[in-house]
């Protein structure tokens, strides 16, 4: 699941080496935590959260096909 986020995020940030992702599974499905360099935070969230929302939408498509749920948290 996190490979999808990783590909998108590393393609749009200025410091791909500082991207870190963790996956935790819990009662409410999978939780992906994303951390990026401070100056890249705006890019992965986007204006009015548009980039983050688009990533969540694509994650939901993949999760639905695998019959699971997934959440993306940007820390």
């Amino acid at each position: 699941m996190k490979e999808l986020v990783e590909y998108i995020v590393k393609s749009i940030v200025s410091e791909p080496d500082k991207v870190s992702l963790t996956e935790e599974s819990g009662d409410e499905g999978l939780l992906i935590k994303l951390e990026v360099a401070a100056e890249d935070k705006g890019r992965v969230i986007g204006r009015q959260g548009r980039v983050a929302e688009a990533m969540r939408t694509l994650l939901r498509v993949k999760a639905a096909r695998n019959d699971t749920r997934v959440r993306l948290e940007i820390v």
């Binding site: 998108i8 393609s11 980039v51 498509v61 639905a64």
Partner: peptide, 25 residues
């Protein structure tokens, strides 16, 4: 259909992400 979504919203998200990555590259 899963890629289109309600009113094409999922497709719009996919298009937005592709535009973003391509522009960056």
């Amino acid at each position: 259909g899963i890629l289109i979504g309600k009113h094409g919203q999922t497709l719009d998200c996919l298009q937005y992400i592709v535009r973003l990555i391509v522009s960056q590259r």
